[in-house]
Design a protein around this nucleic acid. Structure first.
Lengths: 213, 213
DNA sequence: GCACTATCTTGACGGCGTCAAGATTTGGGT
DNA sequence: ACCCAAATCTTGACGCCGTCAAGATAGTGC
């Protein structure tokens, strides 16, 4: 892991890791190639051996984010194979927790990359994988009969839009403070999901003041 | 309107206008104080007489965005005072059109400003006004009996999250191309809204290939 | 062991945000 | 009418930034 001589060895990954750290501490505006390079222990132009430009580094950081998000969503699915209804809640909850754990990384994934017609294949591939996971989940829920009917693609977009929009409004402090005092984020999620499920989802957990996020 | 002598006269507004133009053409990354100053015809440090730093300029640009968004939403409401159901659709549609007309400006409004504990009063005030417009609309729809029941605040957040998330995914090209070929954005909006209304919303307009957005 | 390629360093360029010092204008109080 | 304080704008400077070109160094295949 240490830098011995001229060559680093795993510089590309080191740069991505350093970038994620800086991003989460200082935000996208504070992320610079030179800082990333310094953190990885190389000179200021070394990153250009691995990334065409700053955009490409941000794309790689975003792709890594999608990889982590996919893992979180997957394990939420695995933990509730038997109960599609709870699975839906837990996947939504995992999405929200992922976003709140590292808001800057999450926001960058969805607003820092796509410009012009440049293509970042790994980026698009990982994002597609997550969406397919959601579509499968929706189909299960529809077969179980408690989710609204309609094209699974469109229902998936509904769910994704709903949770994605909600967490972004949350991160941008657009959800009123008063509301957040009365209700935990998880309860809000359940309210949101209840809106587009046929049968209501039970609020199984009593909301305690200490559990508020 | 012209620059005659030393003093500009309406520099603050000129800077905001210039900023919006640059933002919409070159994106947030391409927005610099120096470019804005040049476009307004003043020296590179002149903006500092009106804005504490770049953040403050971006906040002002965002606040102006909220002002315009509020106008759009208001006139959508005014046009359909008699029919709450259609009003809901048209307000959502106005939101989407606003975002698609100037994506960079819209995205900046929701992801460029809030950092640390800084407060930009006009920014928050305009955003709150728009939300209150939505809450009023929701109450009307609930009284008309076709929107799901529950706290008007929470239902408003549901609707806002849904449409906001959807349009952001759209702008970030996260909605699959195949889907967009089969369905217009307006039809998708109606599908989304159908999910959380009691009675379905009629798709009154036949979707023609040429009307696809 | 040699040539080729990938990787990394050094140095330079213009653009950036920001600040300090000074010039110019405006406006209120007398 | 005048003066002075405040507001507004210019000029010049600083360090940081993204990027590129030239060159140094290390690994790789023959």
């Amino acid at each position: 892991m240490r830098r011995k001589n001229y060559h680093h060895g795993h510089l590309k990954n080191a740069l991505i890791s350093a970038g994620i750290e800086i991003l989460s501490k200082e935000g996208l505006a504070g992320l610079s190639i030179r800082k990333v390079a310094k953190k990885a222990g190389v000179s200021h132009a070394a990153p250009y051996a691995h990334f065409a430009d700053k955009q490409a580094l941000i794309a790689a950081i975003s792709a890594e984010g999608y990889r982590r998000l996919y893992d979180e969503l997957s394990s939420a699915v695995e933990s509730h194979r038997d109960n599609p209804q709870q699975m839906l809640v837990e996947v939504g909850w995992a999405y929200i927790q992922f976003a709140m754990k590292d808001p800057e990384h999450f926001k960058t994934m969805f607003s820092g990359v796509i410009e012009q017609e440049k293509d970042y294949p790994e980026f698009r591939e990982m994002s597609q994988k997550s969406f397919e996971l959601l579509v499968t989940l929706v189909r299960d829920c529809q077969e179980a009969g408690f989710l609204i009917s309609g094209s699974a693609d469109m229902v998936s977009i509904s769910l994704w839009s709903l949770v994605h929009g909600f967490v972004l409004l949350l991160l941008e402090s657009q959800i009123s403070h008063k509301l957040l005092e009365r209700m935990s984020v998880r309860t809000m999620l359940i309210f949101l999901l209840n809106g587009i499920t046929k049968k209501g989802i039970e609020v199984t957990e009593i909301e305690l003041p200490t559990s508020r996020v």
